[in-house]
């Protein structure tokens, strides 16, 4: 396997609330390899966005992160503000869910696109302008010279997301984090944007963390998949294994809740119940109240991570018999 670009080990994120500490991410560990697309999947509130914001050092002030996030030989959680700022938008970039509100309404597209070029690459205004036009062309925006002078409200949602991608790619990052980049877009535009991200990944060799709740997007784009539930990674596998041989009942549920138009006999199933509320103390596996396969043990003991084969892990008692790696991390 190629070298990891980013390695997250035992990431814990907690929010300080009025009612005490609320855990948002609990012991997440994973790595992203060079040129790979890692999809993080899960329902809203499962901790996938918080995980990515931890990597960017953009957690809100009330949050506290522990563990290790290694990138380029450095632990991002131990860098000071200035050091992490120099990495943001330069080595690691991020695009967000809402293209309509992610661009500053009072500055031109050109200004916002030139900013990282001036900040990180010390380009002159003129050089930055030329580079920005080239970037807009690259993300498929017609008439880039004119677009440079326009304001975000003059662009459609798809166009704005293309601008966001151009901004994210401006300094040729090693890692791009895309947090639900297509959720707010029309279906036809969604496909175009995903295609664009994949094409740019091929061209530049960067790695991508794609956060989504859409298993269709996962099937289209991922090399490897991380399934998160209630702040924990519950399954990790390469995309083919995950779709063909899912181990965790939650992953199975996600796959069953995906529409399938090719199969007439297919019935769409929803996962019953909802995510536990953040901060709700629960005994046993956090998924057991919604799990069709829950056993007595699931209600009492939180499962540790079991390895099915190299690269395929799940956090479910059902997997215990198949466990190949008994030295797996134990979880409290």
């Amino acid at each position: 396997m190629k070298d990891p670009v980013l390695t997250v080990e035992g990431l814990e994120v907690r929010f300080q609330g009025a009612a005490g500490e609320i855990p948002a991410v609990q012991g997440a560990s994973f790595s992203v390899h060079r040129g790979e697309v890692l999809c993080i999947v899960g329902e809203s509130g499962c901790g996938k966005s918080i995980t990515s914001l931890s990597v960017m050092g953009l957690l809100p002030g009330s949050a506290e992160a522990e563990g290790h996030i290694r990138f380029d030989g450095r632990d991002l959680l131990r860098l000071n503000r200035e050091e992490i700022r120099q990495i943001r938008g330069n080595d690691i970039s991020m695009i967000f869910q809402e293209p309509m509100t992610s661009l500053n309404p009072v500055f031109t597209v050109g200004f916002q696109l030139m900013e990282p070029l001036v900040v990180h690459r010390n380009l002159s205004k003129k050089q930055a302008f030329e580079e920005a036009v080239r970037l807009l062309e690259r993300v498929g925006i017609p008439d880039p010279g004119r677009r440079m002078e326009q304001y975000p409200h003059e662009l459609s949602g798809g166009m704005r997301q293309r601008v966001m991608i151009a901004i994210a790619l401006s300094c040729e990052p090693k890692l791009l984090i895309a947090d639900e980049p297509t959720t707010a877009l029309d279906v036809t535009i969604q496909a175009q944007i995903l295609e664009l991200i994949l094409k740019l990944k091929e061209d530049t060799g960067m790695s991508v963390i794609l956060i989504t709740h859409d298993m269709g997007v996962v099937a289209e784009t991922a090399d490897r998949v991380l399934v998160m539930y209630a702040g924990k990674v519950v399954e990790e596998a390469d995309v083919r294994t995950l779709f063909e041989d899912p181990k965790h009942p939650y992953t199975k549920g996600l796959l069953r809740s995906m529409p399938n138009v090719d199969d007439d006999t297919y019935t769409l199933e929803a996962i019953p119940g909802t995510l536990p509320k953040p901060g709700e103390i629960q005994q046993g596996c956090p998924f057991h109240p919604r799990c069709p396969e829950a056993m007595d043990r699931c209600r009492e003991e939180n499962p540790r991570v079991f390895t099915h084969r190299p690269g395929h892990m799940s956090r479910c008692w059902l997997a215990e018999e198949e466990d190949q790696d008994h030295a797996g991390e134990s979880v409290g």
């Binding site: 960017m56 953009l58 700022r85 938008g89 970039s93 967000f96 661009l103 900013e115 990282p116 966001m164």
Partner: peptide, 8 residues
């Protein structure tokens, strides 16, 4: 958040 993510 975008501005911060750009490293401004």
């Amino acid at each position: 958040r975008t501005a911060r993510a750009k490293g401004v």
